[in-house]
Nucleic acid binder design. Sequence first.
DNA 1: GATGTGATTGCAGCTTGTGCAATCACCGTA
DNA 2: TACGGTGATTGCACAAGCTGCAATCACATC
Lengths: 187, 187
Amino acid sequence: MPRWKPDAAERLQTAALELFDQQGFERTTVAEIVQRAELTQRTFFNHFADKREVLFRLSSRLQEEIVREIAAGDDALPPLDAVVRALEVVADKMFEDHRAVVARRHAVIAANPELLERELGKNAALTEAIAAALQARCGDPETAFLAAGAAMLAQQAAFRQWTRPGETRTLRDLLLDAVRSLRTTVG
Amino acid sequence: MPRWKPDAAERLQTAALELFDQQGFERTTVAEIVQRAELTQRTFFNHFADKREVLFRLSSRLQEEIVREIAAGDDALPPLDAVVRALEVVADKMFEDHRAVVARRHAVIAANPELLERELGKNAALTEAIAAALQARCGDPETAFLAAGAAMLAQQAAFRQWTRPGETRTLRDLLLDAVRSLRTTVG
DNA sequence: GATGTGATTGCAGCTTGTGCAATCACCGTA
DNA sequence: TACGGTGATTGCACAAGCTGCAATCACATC
């Protein structure tokens, strides 16, 4: 028989999400999480740099997908459209079918300032990565940064709406709406 | 004679900034900071919620000024222009004459992921406050959010440039340039 | 002169996070 | 089958961040 039960990281994430959801992030200790996942504290910190990171297991993959999609896109597209198209593709691939889980996770994050800060950090890193991908194509760093930031702003507005109870439109449609609104508001 | 030396919070901030600048945020302990400021750890945590917060003493005042300036502005201005005007005024009042100190502080923050996350949190809170101030005037929440986010994006681009060594233009001018670039990129 | 206020302090204790060494199933190779 | 390397997990000791509670005592007020 195997020495350990498989999927330690996933078990830790699941246990953590359940506990954070029930009793809040601050009122949950790492000791409780590892007890539920039948592991030890040391193992928790082998998998995750800190207590917050357990909720962001997929963000690096998300960033890779988006950057790849930008690089694979049509070079003739204006920078903002290039990013938006990539976000559409990834929204369909990684979000659309998991609205309930994603909304649940987002509620946990939104309920705690520390987790919110971590998410902002991930978003900022993603924005930088997008800007770098754009710059590899179009050149000008400031344009790349502004296009990346604008796209992420629209994405954020769309995501907020998408996780509202009762909302049924797809994230892709909401993103396109948000881009239209942004063009009106800025232009 | 007075029981304690005055301005404890300011002394703590000064001591912390010096130490962070010399040896980095992570390599500096709260014990070192309070020793330099001639206070105790308990007093440090009476003044600041955590070790990072010592670098953000002025951010609440900054937020108040900007929100007040938006409320005091011309009601007929489109939302983005209303925010930009407020940012211009506050840039002149609180930043323009302190480029060296501000750049120094920004370098310390940029050098550490934890501090960067905290700054992103402050910026997000400021964006929400701006959006709320706009919404009190123009109504639509999504437009308010997008205008606030777009203005903060331009502000961020301008600030980056303003703190570059050798840059001599004013933050106000750089902000207006960034808004123009944003309009081009988005529109 | 009595009294209340508030900034500071000491201390005990919990939680997060790290370095280092040890364990032991699994895998490839001889 | 035997053998040695790999890698995920663990225990332990410890630094550092942060909190609750009670005590101090200059200062202001009456």
